[in-house]
């Protein structure tokens, strides 16, 4: 009996499976950066509410900028995603890959900025950092008496007497994170290029590598997980300094305190007007070929760019997105309206 019931059940189920597949997709599919994810989530959720009955709520997958763009460039059609969220600009290699697979027309949408902050436990001393300090604390080789030598610094005080008398311990984003690139470019490279020893290196590539190579003696630890892991580590090592997104710091103000960089305290305002140096633009990329095919795709992009989401008091801004100035927002909207492409 049991056997027969199971067999019958299987056949019915297979029949259902066979009939169900032949349906056009009526829901936007998005994938990519976990930094953009919270903003894409709120936009998708509000889009679903605002267009209830007309369009379905988009699906937002997480997984990282590179994975999202790879998926995005996989081809055109219902089984491919419509939008890739990215915490960095699309690379020329990825555009080529896209073109090879038939994704010829890509529209780039900038949504705002992400601020990257240095924070320590509330039990630690206060840090007023310069990019130079971080470079000297993190680099594998630092200038010592005219030439590069293995990093000798073990206490912040040795780098600058104004810094707290605390052993150096940093938690920096791992190499698979988009944040790492910003950290290298805006902090390490900015911090190293004033040293004559670095200037003396003529080969540009070797110079960049000298700035970016990170010490491996355990005083700087790569975190491959997310900010929650960095926070857990800071609570275990209260003297350490960690790298966070501004919104994460904002949600955890009771546990961590932020360091100023070049004398500027990071906040939505100081990042938006460019005074605070460590920030990066956030983007998403749209397949133009899918506009008009996937219902609601154009409306979703317009909704995302509306002031309700990315405006100065928008909902994504409440979640920690740094808004673009009004003029820039208008320019992004106009470019999307005209159908401007990445090339």
């Amino acid at each position: 009996m049991l056997v027969r019931t199971i067999a019958a059940g299987t056949f019915t189920a297979l029949a259902v499976l066979a009939t169900g597949t032949a349906q056009a997709r009526d829901q936007i599919q998005i994938a990519g950066s976990s930094t953009v994810l919270p903003f894409a989530n709120i936009a998708a959720e509000q889009f679903g509410k605002a267009f209830a009955g007309k369009f379905k709520t988009p699906i937002v997958e997480s997984g990282g900028s590179s994975a999202g763009l790879k998926n995005f460039c996989g081809g055109i059609g219902e089984n491919t995603i419509d939008i890739a969220n990215s915490s960095r600009k699309i690379r020329p290699r990825e555009i080529e890959e896209c073109k090879k697979n038939g994704v010829a027309e890509i529209q780039e949408i900038k949504i705002g900025y992400d601020g990257i902050v240095f924070a320590s436990s509330t039990q630690s001393g206060k840090f007023a950092l310069e990019p130079k300090h971080i470079y000297l604390a993190v680099a594998a080789q630092v200038p010592v008496k005219g030439k590069l030598a293995a990093n000798p610094y073990r206490n912040w005080k040795e780098i600058d007497p104004k810094l707290p008398d605390q052993p150096i311990q940093l938690f920096i984003p791992g190499e698979k994170h988009g944040t790492r690139e910003v950290f290298e470019e805006k902090v390490l490279e900015a911090g190293c290029h004033d040293f004559p020893e670095i200037k003396a290196i003529t080969d540009a590539k070797a110079r960049a590598n000298a700035c970016k190579a990170v010490r491996k003696d355990g005083l700087s630890v790569d975190i491959d997980g997310d900010y929650t892991e960095t926070l857990a580590r800071l609570q275990r090592t209260p003297t350490a300094v960690g790298v966070f997104g501004l919104s994460f710091y904002d949600q955890n103000r009771d546990k961590i305190q932020v360091a100023t960089v070049s004398g500027i305290e990071p906040s939505v305002e100081t990042i938006a007007d460019g005074k605070y140096p460590v920030s990066r633009p956030l983007y998403f990329y749209v397949k133009k070929a899918h506009i008009g095919v996937i219902p609601g795709l154009k409306e979703y992009v317009q909704f995302f760019l509306s002031d309700k989401i990315v405006g100065d008091e928008g909902m994504a801004v409440d979640k920690g997105l740094i808004p673009m100035p009004a003029a820039e927002r208008a320019a992004v909207r106009a470019a999307f309206g005209k159908g401007a492409l990445v090339n």
């Binding site: 499976l17 599919q29 937002v60």
Partner: peptide, 16 residues
């Protein structure tokens, strides 16, 4: 693609 932010209930096993 199932590690995703899904707001609406799936009506059938074919919906996200």
């Amino acid at each position: 693609g199932m590690v995703a932010f899904v707001v609406a209930y799936p009506a059938t096993p074919f919906d996200p």
